[in-house]
């Protein structure tokens, strides 16, 4: 049985490892974009401007209410359609092109991650004690310095557990991208199953790999939280 997972001609080890690499790339590419969207949406939802606030709240409510896989289909099919319409506009004779599933995956996952992380970040901003900011103003710090030196480190501490959960959820959600034909871990497993006719063995291995990635993330996150919580440890 171990031969099945060996590397090279006879085994599926290298194919599955390729899939793992795609999965990891997908998650790592999504994280900064998703966080960026999260900050923008959180700022919009906390803004004094009413229409902007409505957009912020509307976005989080919408994205959190939709199944992730539906968002993925909408982005993949919708953006593909839009892209081809634009190309047709440009040049009527152009061949329709395929929208890259990787980019569609990153956009869809980042949109979802952005909505959920906006809620976490908003909560963290609310948890920030106004006195901390006032103390910064009182020594004459500019709003910019206050944001980077006081607000952000404290928000980071409040938001880290929530963001950590979202990261693990997103890592798992990358599996959805296999449905739109991206060769991630899930998809490569499917290919292996088609050849070997051993679905249980291979899907179990896929599950174990995801599990391992989740557990690894948890360990790293616990370390990061410990680090971020230096200041509030009770003696």
């Amino acid at each position: 049985m171990f031969e099945l997972f060996s590397f090279g001609e006879n085994g599926w080890g290298d194919e599955i490892l390729d899939g793992v690499a795609i999965t990891a790339q997908l998650a790592i590419a999504t994280l900064p974009i998703g966080l960026f969207i999260g900050f923008i949406v959180a700022f919009a939802a906390m803004s004094k401007n009413k229409p902007l606030r409505a957009i912020g709240y509307g976005y989080t409510t919408l994205m959190r209410g939709l199944p992730e896989i539906l968002t993925l289909f909408v982005v993949y099919n919708g953006a593909g359609l839009l892209l081809n319409t634009i190309i047709k506009w440009w040049n009527v004779d152009a061949q329709p092109i395929d929208f890259s599933p990787f980019i569609a995956g990153v956009i869809a996952l980042a949109m979802v991650f952005g909505a959920f992380s906006a809620e976490v970040l908003r909560g963290a901003f609310n948890a920030l004690d106004e006195g901390q900011v006032e103390a910064g103003r009182a020594v004459g710090m500019s709003p910019n310095v206050i944001f980077w030196r006081i607000k952000l480190p404290q928000i980071w501490r409040f938001a880290l557990p929530g963001l950590g959960n979202l990261w693990i959820n997103m890592l798992k959600d990358t599996s959805l991208v296999s449905i739109i034909a991206l060769n991630d871990l899930m998809r490569m497993t499917k290919v292996a199953v088609a050849f070997t006719k051993q679905p249980f063995t291979f899907y179990l291995v896929a599950c174990l790999i995801y599990w391992l990635m989740s557990l690894l993330s948890e360990i790293i996150l616990a370390k990061m939280e410990q680090n971020a919580n230096r200041g509030i440890m009770r003696v």
Binding site: S175, L176, M186, K190, Y203, A206, C207, Y210, S214, L215
Partner: peptide, 10 residues
């Protein structure tokens, strides 16, 4: 720790 899609396929 595992995606529900993987659980479903399993």
């Amino acid at each position: 720790g595992t995606p529900i899609l993987a659980q479903l396929f399993l």
